[in-house]
């Protein structure tokens, strides 16, 4: 259950302000692609366009050759799931009920949950390590548990393309790695916006760096995130270092000195 994602000449602007221009993407089936960039570079906007819930002002998105923005809402929702940054959830909702919302594209708007739905919800919650939280109100969950419940909501939607907006926010380091490991293992095409460059480097097949609305080339992490790029985009110095245990190359960020501060 994967899909080939092709985006051609995507652009987006609000009034005079250009948010994205000329974004080209060619993502293979089953690939996990990370999007990194400083705050306000257009990551969330790009994800919303790829999810089909915001129309680009130019360009198009093709899923296995089918134009995404021409699909009806319901059919689209069976192809793409977006797990956003929703912060305030209805507090009386139970975690299981929230996850079951992911089945909305597969049922009529008036029907409730049947027993096969409960099984799907339980499976998705088990995948994110929260099997025993089905009956817990979402307002009693910690920030990290909440992120994982939201991810389970995306998983249960059973879409070949999964878009994640900062899924590791609020997660402790073990759950960050666990979540990214889980995402990689999925038999789906995944596009994930990340803040953590080290996490992007170690867990994504390829990385797209967004800078002031423009996309640098989509490349394997070590080619995409060179010290020069990190310096130009994020304004910090980075040094590639070999990890003494794993042998992988990591970027070591140099702390800002007082004279670098504005």
């Amino acid at each position: 259950m994967t899909v080939h994602l092709l985006a051609e000449g995507l652009a987006c602007s609000v009034g005079q302000r250009v948010i994205l221009r000329d974004v080209e993407l060619d993502i293979a089936e089953g690939e996990t692609v990370g999007i990194v960039g400083p705050n306000g570079c257009g990551k969330s906007t790009l994800l919303r366009i790829l999810a089909g819930i915001r129309a680009p002002s130019a360009g198009r998105v093709l899923l296995d050759g089918v134009p995404l923005h021409r699909l009806g809402a319901r059919r689209r929702a069976r192809k793409v799931a977006l797990v956003g940054q929703e912060q305030d959830l209805p507090s009386d909702l139970l975690a299981g009920e929230l996850v079951a919302l992911g089945l909305t594209p597969y049922r009529s708007p008036w029907s409730g949950g049947g027993s096969h739905e409960r099984a799907a919800v339980a499976a998705a919650l088990a995948e994110v390590d929260l099997a025993d939280h089905v009956d817990r109100p979402v307002d009693r969950l910690s920030g990290g548990e909440r992120r994982r419940v939201l991810l389970a909501r995306g998983l249960v939607q059973e879409t070949p393309l999964l878009l994640l907006d900062e899924p590791t926010n609020h997660l402790d380091v073990r759950h960050q790695l666990h979540l990214m490991h889980l995402v990689r293992r999925l038999d789906r095409t995944v596009v994930v916006a990340l803040h953590d460059l080290a996490l992007a480097t170690t867990t994504c097949d390829r990385v797209l760096v967004l800078h002031e609305g423009r996309a640098l080339s989509l490349a394997p992490p070590r080619e995409a995130l060179t010290p020069d790029v990190v310096n130009a985009v994020f304004g910090v110095d980075a040094t590639p270092i070999r990890h003494p245990v794993t042998g992988d190359t990591h970027l070591l960020i140099t702390p800002l000195r007082p004279e670098d501060m504005p």
């Binding site: 809402a73 929702a77 069976r78 956003g84 305030d88 929230l98 919302l101 909305t104 594209p105």
Partner: peptide
């Protein structure tokens, strides 16, 4: 649960 989530659910 929010308009983006709703939209992405079709």
């Amino acid at each position: 649960t929010g308009s983006d989530t709703a939209a992405s659910l079709g």
